[in-house]
Simulated assay, not measured.
Amino acid sequence: MAWCAACDWNVDPGEPEEPDGRLEALRRRLARQHGERLLAEVTTDEPPRPRRDAASVLALALALAVHGVTAALFVGGLLLVVLGRGGAFPVLGALCLFIAWLLRPRFPRLPEDEQVLHRADAPELFALIDEIAGTVGTTGVHAVAVNGETNASVSTYGLRRRRLLTIGLGLWEMLTTDQRIALLGHELGHYANGDTRQGMVLGNALHSLDTWRYLLSRIERPTLPEVLLNALYLVPRSVVVGVAAALDHLTLRATQRGEYLADSFAARCGSTEAAVGLMDGLLVSGSAAATLLRESNAPRSHRAGGRAAGEADSGLWDRLAAHAESIPASEYERQRRRSALRGHSVDSTHPPTHLRRARLLAGAALPATVTVDSARGAALRAELSGARDRVARRIMNGG
Rank of each mutant, 00 (worst) to 15 (best):
Val42Leu: 04
Trp212His: 11
Ala379Tyr: 02
Ala245Glu: 10
Asp12Ile: 00
Leu278His: 07
Val69Leu: 14
Trp9Asp: 00
Ala55Asn: 03
Pro90Val: 10
Ser208Arg: 13
Leu232Met: 11
His344Glu: 11
Leu341Asn: 03
Ile181Glu: 12
Leu73Ile: 03
Leu202Ile: 15
Arg334Tyr: 11
Tyr332Glu: 03
His323Arg: 12
Ala288Leu: 01
Thr138Met: 14
His350Trp: 15
Leu229Ile: 11
Leu26Ile: 08
Leu293Lys: 06
Leu97Trp: 09
Glu383Leu: 01
Leu110Gly: 02
Met1Pro: 15
Ala379Thr: 05
Arg109Trp: 03
Glu18Tyr: 03
Val11Ile: 01
Pro351Ile: 06
Val240Phe: 05
Gly170Asp: 00
Leu293Gly: 07
Arg104Lys: 13
Ala308Val: 12
Glu295Arg: 13
Gly315Ile: 09
Glu383Phe: 03
Ala308Gly: 13
Thr176Ala: 09
Ala152Met: 02
Ala392Pro: 12
Ala392Trp: 12
Arg394Met: 04
His34Tyr: 03
Arg37Tyr: 01
His344Gly: 08
Leu355Ala: 07
Thr371Asp: 09
Thr291Tyr: 13
Val201Trp: 13
Ala31Phe: 02
Cys269His: 10
Gly286Leu: 06
Asn193Asp: 15
Asp20Asn: 02
Ser314Thr: 07
Ile167Asn: 00
Leu38Gln: 00
Leu355Trp: 04
Leu30Phe: 02
Ser374Val: 13
Pro111Trp: 01
Cys4Glu: 04
Arg51Glu: 09
Gly199Lys: 14
Gly286Arg: 05
Ala262Trp: 01
Leu128Ser: 07
Thr44Trp: 09
Gly277Ser: 04
Glu112Ile: 01
Pro352Cys: 08
Ala94Val: 14
Leu202Asn: 11
Trp317Thr: 08
Leu250Ala: 13
Leu355His: 08
Ser155Ile: 00
Leu360Ile: 06
Val146Ser: 04
Gly270Ile: 02
Val372Glu: 06
Ala55His: 03
Asp347Gly: 10
Leu209Ser: 12
Gly168Met: 03
Ala231Leu: 15
Asp8Glu: 02
Pro352Glu: 09
Arg218Tyr: 15
Ala145Glu: 05
Thr371Glu: 09
Arg342Ala: 05
Pro225Tyr: 05
Leu209Thr: 14
Pro47Gln: 05
Val66Phe: 02
Glu259Ser: 07
His186Val: 09
Ala379Gly: 02
Ser345Val: 12
Leu80Phe: 14
Ala375Asn: 04
Arg342Gly: 03
Val241Arg: 13
Leu316Phe: 11
Ser301Asn: 11
His354Cys: 08
Arg253Tyr: 07
Val276Asp: 08
Arg357Ile: 11
Leu278Glu: 06
Ala254Phe: 11
Ala262Leu: 02
Gly77Ser: 02
Leu202Tyr: 09
